[in-house]
């Protein structure tokens, strides 16, 4: 095996370990830290008291956002 082949192999195997490993670690962390415990609440995190659920937030300039 030439050094060039070895470098290619190292890149591929290294990538598999690093990126596959990162995905596994991220999923493990997500479970442990309770990211998936309350999905209903999770879906509502982008809303707030100022822009609550049930309130459309965009309109053509000068227009009504509709209902």
């Amino acid at each position: 095996m030439s050094p060039a082949d070895f470098a290619v192999l190292l890149t591929i195997v290294g990538s598999i370990v690093l990126f596959g490993g990162a995905a596994v670690l991220a999923l493990g962390w997500a479970f442990r830290s309770g990211q998936f415990d309350n999905l209903d609440r999770g879906a509502r995190t982008i809303f707030g008291p100022d822009e609550p659920v049930g309130q459309p937030t965009d309109a053509f300039p000068g227009g009504d956002p509709g209902r």
């Binding site: 509502r44 707030g48 100022d50 659920v53 049930g54 937030t57 965009d58 956002p65």
Partner: peptide, 28 residues
Amino acid sequence: RPRPGGPTYFTGPAAVREGSTTPPPGPL
């Protein structure tokens, strides 16, 4: 035109329809 109420879309009196059937979100 300058946006009414700055960056957030609705901060004026019409902002939240009181008595709306949709429940407001949980506390931050």
